[in-house]
Structure formats: C-alpha cells, structure tokens
Write a protein that binds this DNA or RNA. Sequence first.
DNA 1: CTCTGTGCAAACACTTTGCAGCTAA
DNA 2: TTAGCTGCAAAGTGTTTGCACAGAG
Lengths: 156, 156
Amino acid sequence: MRGKTDTEATGHIEDRMEAFRSKCRATGLKITPQRMAVYKALLESMEHPSAEVVFRQVRKTYPSISLDTVNRTLLTLSEIGAAFIVEGSGDAKRFDANLKNHQHFKCVKCKRIIDFHHEAFDCLHIAENLLPGCTVLRKTVYLEGYCDLCQDSHKG
Amino acid sequence: MRGKTDTEATGHIEDRMEAFRSKCRATGLKITPQRMAVYKALLESMEHPSAEVVFRQVRKTYPSISLDTVNRTLLTLSEIGAAFIVEGSGDAKRFDANLKNHQHFKCVKCKRIIDFHHEAFDCLHIAENLLPGCTVLRKTVYLEGYCDLCQDSHKG
DNA sequence: CTCTGTGCAAACACTTTGCAGCTAA
DNA sequence: TTAGCTGCAAAGTGTTTGCACAGAG
C-alpha cells in the first residue's frame, strides 16, 4: 500500500470524483450533474454537513436542485459506501465523505461532535473471523462523554 | 481494579441499580419508580432497545407509565452518562445501558447493527491531551460496511 | 412545603414516498 | 429509446414541548 498522507482527504478532489464516477458505473448509478455536485460538496466539506447544509452549498452551482434530491442522493451515497452517516444520533442526519480514518467524540450533554485524530486508531486490525461474510468499509473510534464546555454543568 | 468478567453487564443488576441511585442523588435527579423501572429495563435488555421497546417492557410492571416518560427518561439517562444512544443513524433512537466496552458494525445497506466484541478494542488508550478538558465515558469501535446478507446485492 | 417528574396531547422537524416530466446512456 | 433521476408536494414517524397534577425530598 502506498503512503497515505493526511491531505489525501482534502486534496485530489478530481481523483476522487473520478473514482466516484467509476463506482457509479459499477453499481449502475447514472452520472447526473446533481449527483456529482452533491458528492463534490460533500468531499469539499470537512464538517459533517447535514442534508440542508449540502443543499445550500450545491444550490450555489445548481440553483434548481431540490432538497429532496440532495437527501435522496446522500442516502444513495451512503448505500454504495461513497459517504457515511455520522453517528449524529440526534436531530438531522450528518454526512461525511471523508473515508480516511478518523475519530469522533460526542458530548452526551450538548450533543456536539468533536473530530479528532489519533494515529493508533487508524491502525486497528479487524480480524477476518470477527465478522464473517461482512465487508468493512470504514472504521471509526467513537467516544462519548462530557466536552470541555459541559464539564462543569453536570457537576452542579 | 478488581477483575471484571463478561457477565458483569448482565449480572449484578442490583449493584448497578444502587450505583444509579447514587448517581441520581449526585446529579440531583429524583428517584422515581418510573425512572428506576426504565433504567432496570434498559439494564436487562441486551439488544439496544428503542424507546418503544423499553416502554413495552416497563409497562408490564408499571402499566400507567407513558411513552413520553420513557422517552424523556432515556434522554435524561444519556445526559448523565447512565445510558448511551447507539449510533442508530436511522429511524428511532436505540439506547444502551451496557457500559462495558463493546463494538458495533452497521450495514450501510440494510442499516442492521451487529454487535461484536474484540478484546483488543477494549484496551484502547486515550491520550490525555487528545481531548483536553473532556471526560470520556465510553469508547466504542464503530465499523461500517456490507453485512453478510447484503454482500451480494451491492455487486449486482 | 417546594420543586422536579409524570402524563396527556398538540406541535415540530426531518424523512420518506408517489407521480409526471426530464435526461443520461 | 428507455430506464433511472429529479422536483414538487403530501404523508408518515419519531421527538419535543406546555401545562396541570402528583410525588419525592
């Protein structure tokens, strides 16, 4: 495996767009401008946007796109493994196309999701027989607790 | 730390109820029969029940309890760290009072959540400076991909 | 006695679904 | 040409909120 860098996720947008096009062909999905735009917006966003946020972004380029299409597209992306639904466990779903390993911390109090990155967590090895017959597309370490801002309030 | 076994989560219900009562006092929550019943039902369930499932269970003991109370109680539990919201990312929220480390695999296709347990994942060390000021209550390794049942469908 | 918790029901928010026209292949 | 995609709008589901009464501390 060739060296991967931290910038891989943010850089090479075009490469990933091309890979996405291939994936669409492979899975029989049509390559529509809307679909491309949604995926691109997701790639360029590093903040786990909700469908609404993606919608607003995409509309800058495609003013006629509807929120429903964005919603549906994001769902489709998640089903082919081109995007993932973040463990939002709250209000609106949050999406993420950043397939690079990374980690999430969620505050149980304010529900805020903090991203962090710890090298060691990227190297988790999944034993073959752990999930027989399953294909693992993504690994995430998910932490929960009190964030710095809520640290005090729960002691009161 | 005294030895912990895999049965700790299912056994010692009373111990954990008592610990919960202490936690309630510490956080200023009142000890009501409903609250105790909801927590107990969650403790006894190993299947990440939704609020509705907990509701049905609790109602066997407290026929007069309302679904709203169950919902609200589960939310409260999650805010004091006595329960956690599973990365349901789908329909209804799923709850879990099993604080013992364990892992989840979610199929991106059928949304099914498969529990598994891998010793090595229990021992993840969180560096102090990784999340300054935060208190980590729970660690979960979260995997996504295609489950055995959906393995073929995405290739067609 | 006081304040939190509960139950009931309405209000909300987000998501999903159906259908007709459009467009990629 | 044809099957899938998009856009519009309505329906559905689960969640949240307000208020009055009841119960814990």
